[in-house]
Amino acid sequence: MMSSRRRDVIEFLLNNLVWLLLVAVLVVFSLTVPNYFQIGIFANIIEQSTYVGVIAIGLAICIIAGNMDLSVESVAALTAMVVGILFCSRGVGLGYSFSPEWLVVPISLAIALGVGAVIGALNGWLVVGLKMNAFIATLASYIWVRGLVVALSGGRSAQDLAPSLRVIGIQTVLNIPLTAWVAIACFAGFSFVMAKTPFGRHVTMIGGNPVATFRAGIKVDRLVVITFVLAGAIAGLAGWLLAIRSSGATANLGTGMLFNAFAAVVIGGVSLKGGIGRLPGVYAGVLLLSSIHTAINLMGLPAHYTQMILGGLVLAAVLLDTVKLSIRQRLA
C-alpha cells in the first residue's frame, strides 16, 4: 500500500505528462536545431496549432463521451467552402455583402456554426437514434461531406473573401494572430465546461459507464447527441477560421487535419476507451505536434518524414496510454 500523498504526485505526473514532454521537446530543439529558439518561431507554433487545435476540441469531447467523430475534418472543409461561396467575390464565390459591411462577420460565423451543428446532429442521430457504430457512421460522414464540398464547388475554388473577414486573419495581439487567440479561448472555455460544470462531469461519466449514468437519471442519449452537435459546430468554427486564413476555400482545404487532430488527442492523454482525458492536455498535444513540424521544416527534411514521425508518435502515445493504465492499476 502506497501513501496517498505519493500516489497523488504520481497521478499528477501521469495526468500532465504531455506538458512535460512539450517542455522537454522545446528545450531539446532549442539547443540542437539552429534558429529554433526565437519568439517568432514560438508564435508560429501557436499559429500553426489553431485549426487542428480547434477541431481536436470537438473530437476529444466525443471520445471522452465514449464515441468517435471522424467527420470533423470534412465538416471544417464544408463550412469553409460554404463561407467561401457565399462571401468571396471571385472563383465560385457569390459575393454576398451587407451594409454595414462588418455584419458579414457575425453572419458568416453563425452560418459556419450552423452548418457544422447540422452535420453533427445528423451524426448524433445515426449513432443514438439508429444505434449505428460511431466509428462507421462518422467515417461515412467523413467521406460524403468531403464529396459534398467537391460537388458544391465543382472542384473550383473561392477567392477574395469579404474585407471585414480578411482583417481578422491579419490582426495580431502580442505577436500572436487573432485566429490563434480564438483557438486558445476555445480551449480555455471548453476546458472549464468539461472540468467545472455538470455537463462536463456527465459526459465524462457517460464515457466511463453509460448504464450507470442512465440509471442515475442522466439523459444519456440527449447528452451524446449534444457532444456530436458540439463537435460539428466546433469543426464549423475551424472551417470559418480556415476560410479566413486562406481568404477563401479550395475543395481539398484541410486534408490531413483529421489525422493530426487524432494524434494530438491521443498524445494529449485522452483514452480511446472513453471517460479519460482533459482538454488542456489536448492543447499541449497539438502544440507538441506543431513544435515537431516546425523543427522538421527548419532542418529541411522532406515532408514525408513528418508523416513517418507523426505515425510513430501516435503509436508511442497509444503505448503510453497502456503503460499509464498499468501504472495506475499498480497504484490501486
Binding site: M205, A212, R215
Partner: peptide
C-alpha cells in the same frame, strides 16, 4: 453496481 470507476467517490 452502478458506479463510474473513471471518476472519484464524490462524483
Amino acid at each position: 453496481l452502478s458506479l463510474c470507476t473513471n471518476v472519484d467517490v464524490v462524483a
